[in-house]
């Protein structure tokens, strides 16, 4: 399975490492060495203190569903992927990140524990993080 025909992320010098890590099976967050903020999406300057001393940190890939909505229709989306669950997952490291949950809507709720999976794209160095429920 590949990500297309869904939109493939645009890779910039600022986000290249994030997408490449995803292609290698790692979810990265940014951590500011000056003020300690762990943040998403990646930016070269800390959005709290403007420090340029920010590091990449490998996230655990675990978190919980902060909220979600299941779309029953979505123009241009593969029929097989409907309903589409758009969600915010709160990573164990802190940030709430937008993503998809690959599950039946009936099988998740707010608070459900989830873990990351990566969907390949036709770009070799770009994979997209999505989440699946952790089996109890």
């Amino acid at each position: 399975m590949t990500w297309e025909p869904r939109p493939v992320p645009e890779v910039t010098p600022e986000t290249d490492a994030y997408w490449t890590a995803a292609a290698n099976g790692d979810l990265l967050v940014r951590e500011c060495s000056a003020c300690g903020l762990v943040y998403h999406y990646p930016r070269s300057l800390c959005p709290d203190c403007f420090s340029e001393n920010v590091e990449w940190r490998e996230a655990s890939g675990h978190g919980e569903v902060y909220s979600y909505s299941a779309a029953r229709t979505m123009s241009g989306w593969p029929e097989d992927d409907l309903p589409l669950i758009v969600a915010y997952v709160q990573l164990d490291e802190g940030p709430r990140i937008m993503t998809n949950i690959d599950a039946n809507p009936e099988d998740i709720e707010i608070g459900t524990r989830v873990e990351v999976r990566f969907v390949d794209t036709e770009e070799e160095d770009v994979a997209v993080p999505v989440f699946v429920p952790i089996e109890a």
Partner: peptide, 26 residues
């Protein structure tokens, strides 16, 4: 994809209604 944020949001099919749906659900 138009903005820096779109590559982290819109790629997931986040349209206005799914985002307001998330707000309502929460």
């Amino acid at each position: 994809l138009r903005t820096v944020q779109d590559s982290f949001e819109r790629i997931y099919g986040a349209t206005n209604i799914t985002m307001y749906g998330m707000a309502a659900k929460r």
